[in-house]
């Protein structure tokens, strides 16, 4: 874990974990706000988009770009549920188990996914392809309950068959790349 002192001493060189393109994204975001600190969330998104998660080194580099302490960035990164501290699987599956989805079979859907992927809720499949997580925060897809979200896209009116097809498709895409 980088300390504030270490972060303060980190040069703004391109030798860190963040790519030049990511740093450019952060600088563009920073310039848009009346206060550089406001770019904390966009900067963490940029880091996660590049790295798949936000390791301590990335937080220190984000802090450096925004001119704030690494501990301040860490405080923010750990508050929000969507920043990963550790690398998840290639695809992140969130199964909504809030009320509207639960009323329409979310628990069965979650059990099916656990079985199919051979992981418990919160786990990553052995092939590293999927991380499965049930979410208690409503995904805002109640009109198509039960719903789940894979990475940035939601899938609605899910059945075991449709979910199996989706997993097969995502696996095939991964194998081809």
């Amino acid at each position: 874990m980088a300390t504030v002192a270490e972060a303060a001493g980190t040069p703004a060189a391109s030798t860190g974990v963040l790519s030049h393109a990511t740093r450019e994204r952060i600088r563009t975001a920073r310039a848009r706000y009346p206060s550089p600190r406001s770019a904390a969330l966009p900067a963490l998104w940029a880091a996660q988009d590049q790295l798949g998660h936000v390791p301590a080194e990335a937080m220190a580099e984000v802090a450096d770009e925004l001119g704030i302490g690494a501990a301040e960035v860490e405080a923010v990164a750990t508050f929000y549920a969507m920043y990963f501290r550790r690398p998840p699987g290639r695809h992140f599956i969130q199964v909504c188990t809030n009320v509207s989805c639960a009323l329409r079979g979310a628990d069965d859907l979650l059990r099916h996914l656990e079985q199919r992927l051979g992981v418990a809720d919160g786990g990553t499949s052995a092939d590293g392809c999927f991380t499965l997580e049930s979410t208690v925060e409503c995904l805002g897809a109640c009109g198509g309950a039960p719903a789940l979200q894979v990475d940035r896209y939601s899938h609605e009116d899910c059945t075991a068959e449709r979910v199996d097809q989706l997993l097969d498709r995502l696996r095939a895409e991964g194998a081809g790349s």
Binding site: R32, Y33, S38, L41, P42, L44, W45, F79, Y80, A81, M82, Y83, E137
Partner: peptide, 12 residues
């Protein structure tokens, strides 16, 4: 007027 889209990160 500047328009800025700001993405949250999972916090109700």
């Amino acid at each position: 007027c500047e328009l800025i889209v700001h993405g949250g990160a999972g916090a109700y």
